[in-house]
Amino acid sequence: MQQTPRRIIYFVVLALGLAWMLVSADRSGVSTSGKIPAPQQGFLAPDFELKTPEGETVRLSDLRGQAVLVNLWATWCPPCRAEMQSIEKAYQEYKEQGFTVLAVNMTYQDDPSAVMPFVDDQGLTFSILLDETGEVGEAYHLQSLPSSYFIGRDGIINEVVIGGPMSEALLRTRIEDILR
């Protein structure tokens, strides 16, 4: 192809690209679907209401205004067990700044009698919730354990970490993000 026609084609391509960029600009100002509940970064964290082993009811949406880590776990899952001490340490370090942990045990696929002995043995002080029917597992499209959702003060999921165990540095960086 001759040099001049090719230059004209390049110019037209760039002009069309620029026009497309302007035409397809997101005028709503928000590209992510921040108000639709879904277990994905940028979405509103799906709400749930569960009981603790002591019978107290905890609802996620009641914690709006706090930075929340929702951790889905089971006693038979080695990486879940391995990361609990790091989560406890992070909870102790950041709870005064408005950070809280909801450790949701997948009770419907776990041995319910093993939950409290494990919690006591590990000395965990954050909230343990029991998902006896699998509603949270379903709402969060659970595929692997552990699964962790770092939720900002506005209730929007800031980061999803699938698998584990999470290291202390990973917890610190993510918690500091959601506390901002």
Binding site: A169, R172, T173
Partner: peptide, 23 residues
């Protein structure tokens, strides 16, 4: 990543060798 989050890694330097792909 560690350099840009240096304070988190100073407190737990072994995290540098963590298998977490998110770090």
């Amino acid at each position: 990543y560690a350099l840009s989050n240096i304070s988190a890694f100073v407190q737990s330097p072994l995290s540098l060798f963590s298998l977490n792909l998110d770090l």
